[in-house]
C-alpha cells in the first residue's frame, strides 16, 4: 500500500532484515533468562517479604513462590482467549456501519 504522502518505497521485507529480526531467538532467550532470574530473585530475597522490610503480604497467596509469575502468564493467556472468543460474537465487516 502506498503511504499518505507516497513516502513508502515498498522495499523487499527480506532484503534488509534488522538485527532484531535476525536474532529473534536471542531476544526470546533473553526474556526466558529474565523470567528465571525474577524467580531466583524471589528465592534470594524472600526474607524481604515481611513487615520489617516494608512489604508485608496483605494476602497469604502472595507468599506462594512464583505466584505473580504464574498469575501474569495465566491472566495474559486468559485475556487473549477471551478476546478470541469475543471476536466470534462481535466481529463484523470493516464497513459495517457505512453499509
Amino acid at each position: 500500500m502506498k503511504t499518505k504522502d507516497d513516502k513508502s518505497t515498498g522495499g523487499d521485507p527480506n532484503s534488509d532484515a534488522s538485527w532484531l529480526e535476525r536474532n529473534v531467538n536471542v531476544v526470546i532467550a533473553g526474556l526466558v533468562i529474565a523470567c528465571i532470574g525474577s524467580l531466583i530473585a524471589q528465592l534470594w530475597w524472600s526474607p524481604l517479604f515481611d513487615a520489617e522490610h516494608g512489604h508485608p503480604p496483605e494476602f497469604a497467596i502472595e507468599e506462594l513462590f512464583g505466584f505473580e509469575a504464574m498469575f501474569g502468564f495465566a491472566a495474559f493467556v486468559g485475556v487473549v482467549f477471551l478476546g478470541t472468543g469475543l471476536r466470534l460474537i462481535i466481529k463484523r465487516d470493516e464497513d459495517y456501519y457505512d453499509s
Binding site: I28, L31, V32, A34, C35, S38, L39, A41, Q42, W45, L48, F49, H53, G54, H55, E62, G66, E68, A69, M70, F71, G72, F73, A74, A75, F76, V77, V80
Partner: peptide, 23 residues
C-alpha cells in the same frame, strides 16, 4: 521500590511477555 514489590511486578510483566511469545 521495595525489593519484594519490584520482583513481584517484574514476575508479573515478564511472564505475561512470555505468555505472548508462547501464544
Amino acid at each position: 521500590y521495595t525489593a519484594a514489590h519490584v520482583i513481584m511486578q517484574l514476575q508479573l510483566l515478564l511472564f505475561a511477555a512470555l505468555a505472548f511469545v508462547f501464544l
